[in-house]
Design a protein around this nucleic acid. Sequence first.
DNA 1: TCCAAAATTACAAGGATTCCAAATTTGAGG
DNA 2: CCTCAAATTTGGAATCCTTGTAATTTTGGA
Lengths: 211, 211
Amino acid sequence: MEPSSGLRERKKQRTRRALIAAAARLFTEKGYLQTTVAEIAAAAEVSSSTLFNYFAGKDDILFADDRYRLDTALRFIAERDPDEPPSTFMDRLAEQLIAAFTPTDGGTDEVTGIPNSLRLQLITTVPELQARALRLVQEAQRQLAEALHAAYPDQVDRLTAAAMVGAMMGAAQSARQVSLERNELPDQVIAATRHGIEVAMGGVRAAALRP
Amino acid sequence: MEPSSGLRERKKQRTRRALIAAAARLFTEKGYLQTTVAEIAAAAEVSSSTLFNYFAGKDDILFADDRYRLDTALRFIAERDPDEPPSTFMDRLAEQLIAAFTPTDGGTDEVTGIPNSLRLQLITTVPELQARALRLVQEAQRQLAEALHAAYPDQVDRLTAAAMVGAMMGAAQSARQVSLERNELPDQVIAATRHGIEVAMGGVRAAALRP
DNA sequence: TCCAAAATTACAAGGATTCCAAATTTGAGG
DNA sequence: CCTCAAATTTGGAATCCTTGTAATTTTGGA
């Protein structure tokens, strides 16, 4: 029982990547709605049944690596300096979130190899995918808030933690959206996101100081 | 051509209400996923085709009145006292949003007659409906931000308006969610929402004062 | 009463998703 | 190398949502 080495495991990873790659290619060529699950499976040389073994649905293929991103942020919170006060920590977390929101540029996802531009275009274009993305963000917020409370159990109660995370993420998203709708350049999108978080930070800092 | 009186129009409204009522009843009795579109149509004594004439999809039936709620908030912004400064206006808007978030209690929706408890339970339970609700919230935020900017074109730019609305709504939602997950009473849910908005207001007020 | 517009309907088709049982492949032990 | 149990894959049926179309019915006004 080799958990991460055996042939079986390697083959599974290869199939998984093949499915993601096939989906990305077809979505780019024909669009999301015009691509059928059967076509993706065929392009990856597996049956449709197998596709559903790997992903819960057509939309899940695009969000295959989301747990990875979230884990990065959760680790950032968990591994904080135990002596750092909440107020300055929130400032650093803000920077971290800005970085996480960055994938506006022309790169490709580290884990899945999906071009960020494709993902972004699909999320803003296809209602079904926008909805999926929003659900993931909400779940991420939940966990971030929980981690924040766990990091400062005596100084930040669950409710305040949720409010702080919600304010930061909500402001960041809204501001970012405005910039994206203006078709601004990546640098400007990041600046807009930063501005949004900065607006929220006014209240977040105050909440972090008042235990 | 009587726009809102004729028999034709009245009959349409009746059919619409019948569909919503049938859906609400069946969702309550058998659950959302277990209820088919055909069953809803049959219970309302129309064909499935007609159901799709009235609603874009099964999930839309539950959100039939959302435009109404949003319009209320938009009117609140549009009809502000032209001389009121942004900072105090935002305080009043905050109260307004808390009220809008209130439907936690045991009442039923004014427009559709759907019990708030049913809607809330379904939204938190069925992923598809949660996603739909989140998309509606995002769209509402967009319009609120636009209205806010329109109300104070010289003092609140679009980006800051979006950030303010995003922070308030994000914080309110997150905090409310925590309270709901604890199965708290309506009063406590409202208090939690208020707390969330209060956290966000710290930054929002500052942004409203800095033109 | 008669007509044109508006609604409703039946029906077919396409596609996502679930389920299940059969067939295949893999890993490990002998 | 051989064999077997477990893990994977697969084909295919079945259900349901959703869209599109063309026929039919209903409605309001002339």
